[in-house]
């Protein structure tokens, strides 16, 4: 479609007569205009994304002072050695993060797919009831995590919270939740599952609506049961969406900050308690740089986090492509 936009003189340039001044001008404008149009975007991205992505690597080798390179002291790989030292708590934060991600990803997929399956329906004309109930599920996702996490702090209050009231109702002993180093992270998980599931559900709903009705009907006619149809027809169609959900949930989970901060008393020393049990790498990074002001050390943490996210995305893509069925 785009090729016919090319003016004839561009194609036959060598044989064409010399261009007139006006044409030369127009050609130059055309060539330059593209660059002019992308310039603002490229400039801002250079300042706040590409530049910092390089700077963070450089910073990690310095005892960084805000004044800049001339005020900072080169320390070589010292920060990376500290990361590996168990006393620094970085490895612990990694294991907290992996625990968190390892539970969040499968839970998000199972619940997201289940809820999407429950709310499936005609793609383009859902009933008012479906529109309403789907909106209810999606609503938490657009709310600021800080505000809703405060509500969850009430719910998880060990003495007067609803969570323990519900447990007591079922005669299960009450839990400490946010004051317990075992249950604080699960409480955060419940909050974030509630908060982010709507997004996954929308993705799965879109995936479900892309499945041609004939495929399901054919399976139905061939005598496949509900489960068989789901397993052998629906799931393969959903594999690209599922791969995307895995990648996005991993990234989201590794960067969770506001909810943990609000639920674990971030205002008092950066959060992540009790006993570092909710100190994910994102919280650890924040505290290193903005509570303890070790910018260089925080930069080293950032580099490792960066590499880890990149590696996980690539691995998931590679593994995923193998098991993904594209139409």
């Amino acid at each position: 479609m785009q090729e016919n936009l090319q003016t004839p003189w561009e194609k036959s340039r060598p044989l064409a007569p010399p261009l007139s001044a006006a044409r030369t001008l127009r050609r130059t404008t055309k060539a330059v205009s593209g660059w002019l149009l992308v310039l603002p975007a490229l400039a801002i991205l250079t300042l706040f994304t590409y530049g910092p992505a390089l700077l963070v690597v450089a910073m990690s080798f310095y005892h960084w002072s805000l004044g800049g390179f001339q005020d900072s002291q080169w320390v070589g790989a010292l920060h990376y050695q500290e990361l590996l030292n168990p006393i620094s708590g970085f490895l612990e934060s990694l294991s907290v993060t992996f625990y968190y991600v390892g539970i969040m990803v499968p839970m998000t997929i199972a619940l997201g797919l289940g809820i999407a399956w429950l709310f499936r329906g005609a793609a383009h004309k859902p009933t008012p009831w479906l529109t309403f109930t789907r909106a209810a599920v999606f609503l938490p996702y657009i709310t600021p995590a800080i505000a809703t996490s405060i509500i969850w702090v009430f719910i998880f209050n060990p003495q007067f919270g609803l969570a323990n009231a519900a447990l007591r109702f079922f005669h299960i002993p009450a839990l400490g939740w946010l004051v317990s180093s075992t249950w604080a992270l699960p409480a955060v998980m419940i909050n974030n599952l509630w908060h982010n599931l709507g997004f996954t559900v929308v993705l799965f709903l879109a995936g479900l609506s892309n499945i041609p009705g004939e495929a399901v009907e054919a399976a139905w006619l061939d005598g496949a049961g509900g489960w068989q149809t789901f397993r052998y027809v629906v799931l393969p169609y959903l594999s690209p969406v599922t791969l995307m959900v895995v990648i996005l949930t991993t990234i989201q989970a590794m960067q969770a900050f506001g909810s943990i901060y609000a639920m674990t008393g971030g205002q008092f020393g950066g959060g992540g308690g009790p006993l570092n049990s909710t100190t994910t790498t994102a919280i650890y990074l924040y505290k290193s740089a903005f509570i303890f002001f070790h910018y260089g050390y925080g930069a080293a943490v950032s580099v490792v986090l960066f590499a880890l996210l990149l590696l996980m995305t690539i691995v998931q893509k590679q593994v995923g492509e193998r098991y993904t069925t594209y139409q």
């Binding site: 991205l45 300042l47 706040f48 994304t49 590409y50 530049g51 910092p52 992505a53 700077l55 963070v56 910073m59 960084w64 805000l66 990234i251 590794m254 960067q255 900050f257 994102a282 990074l285 924040y286 740089a289 903005f290 910018y295 925080g298 930069a299 950032s302 580099v303 986090l305 960066f306 996210l309 990149l310 995305t313």
Partner: peptide, 18 residues
Amino acid sequence: LAALMVPPEAILIPDYVV
């Protein structure tokens, strides 16, 4: 496209410096 590969969390500190 490359900008999408950079997680915002990882450039928090250098962004602060900028």
